[in-house]
């Protein structure tokens, strides 16, 4: 029973990370029907931006003084930076290729991911090897009748919930959110209604990438490690989660992320040798969904417009 609860917490943790990545993916698909395959690498870019920031802050002696606050500021700064990166990706890469066949754009995002990864590897000192990532999250743990609840896990789950709730607020309640939903549903109509399409798309990229950066640093500080090529796997998991939940649907991305996280953690625990093959299980889940329910858990059947 205790191991089960322990696994539950682990699963929630992994789910949080996947959901954060999946939300960006699903939003890109929603507004411009693009699967951005550089998204996972944006997460890793976040970690590699964070490390020098942290180092610098340590050098200035800020970290020891009032750690919590400084880290919070650093995280906000990082979210800002990755958000900016999202806007850059849209302006430099996506926008010029919007008129091209979708295959070209898709391949371009794949190549962009490769460029991010490899640029990190060759630019960062000793970049080919795993890097120790600073512990941004509180250490220690809570012991509840035999179950250890790491403060770091709890913080991650808590932060994810905050992110998701605020995003939900943005989408449901703000003008920007209304614009996003309108563009998702029908860009032409949205434009006629006077919505600034371009601005909406950029804000989606900013939000998506900022969440990816967040996911990256949470992932990094939980495992204490980051590496230039972690992004491909994280990105694919995020995309898988989005597909499972129903592409284009914000809530679906979270549901998918949770499902994928649970599948992985429990398969690794209960299937012999499962931890070696946990990625295999999650991909099998995606393929099963593509065959039996391609529109995902929450997605409605889409009739492609002709």
């Amino acid at each position: 029973m205790n191991t089960f609860l322990q696994l539950l917490i682990s699963a929630l943790l992994v789910s949080s990370l996947y959901s954060l990545v999946a939300v960006g993916f699903t939003m890109y698909v929603g507004v411009i029907n693009l699967a951005n395959f550089s998204h996972g690498d944006t997460c890793v870019l976040g970690t590699f931006l964070m490390m020098p920031l942290f180092l610098y802050a340590t050098k200035l002696g800020w970290i020891s003084a009032s750690t919590g606050l400084v880290i919070l500021i650093l995280i906000i700064l990082l979210i800002f930076l990755t958000g900016l990166w999202g806007a850059a990706i849209y302006t430099i890469l996506v926008k010029p290729l919007l008129a091209a066949p979708r295959l070209i754009l898709l391949l371009a995002t794949v190549a962009a991911g490769q460029v991010i990864r490899e640029a990190i590897r060759v630019i960062y000192p000793n970049g080919s090897n795993p890097q120790v990532f600073p512990k941004l999250l509180p250490s220690g743990s809570l012991n509840l009748s035999g179950i250890t609840l790491g403060y770091d896990s709890l913080t991650i789950i808590f932060l994810t919930i905050i992110c998701i709730l605020s995003l939900n607020f943005i989408i449901q309640k703000t003008k920007m959110g209304v614009a996003m939903r309108a563009v998702s549903q029908n860009a032409d109509v949205a434009q006629m209604m006077g919505i600034n399409i371009e601005q909406t798309i950029i804000s989606v990229f900013v939000i998506g990438s900022a969440l990816a950066g967040m996911a990256g640093i949470l992932n990094g500080s939980y495992y204490g490690i980051t590496k230039f090529n972690l992004g491909s796997n994280l990105g694919i998991k995020g995309f898988s989660a989005a597909v499972i939940g129903g592409l284009g649907d914000f809530k679906g991305a979270i549901v998918g992320g949770v499902l994928l996280g649970f599948i992985e953690v429990f398969a690794a625990a209960y299937i012999p040798n499962g931890s070696q093959y946990q990625d295999v299980f999650s991909f099998l889940a995606v393929i099963a969904f593509l065959i039996f329910r391609p529109s995902g858990i929450l997605g409605e059947k889409i009739f492609e417009k002709v």
Binding site: D279, L290, I291
Partner: peptide, 26 residues
């Protein structure tokens, strides 16, 4: 190719990456 016949090109991209990774892991 089978699972993606009725889906979009990005699904195909996903399945092919997944196949690549699964093969590598196996």
């Amino acid at each position: 190719g089978l699972p993606t016949l009725k889906t979009r090109s990005y699904h195909m991209a996903l399945v092919s990456i997944a196949f690549g990774l699964v093969t590598y892991i196996l």
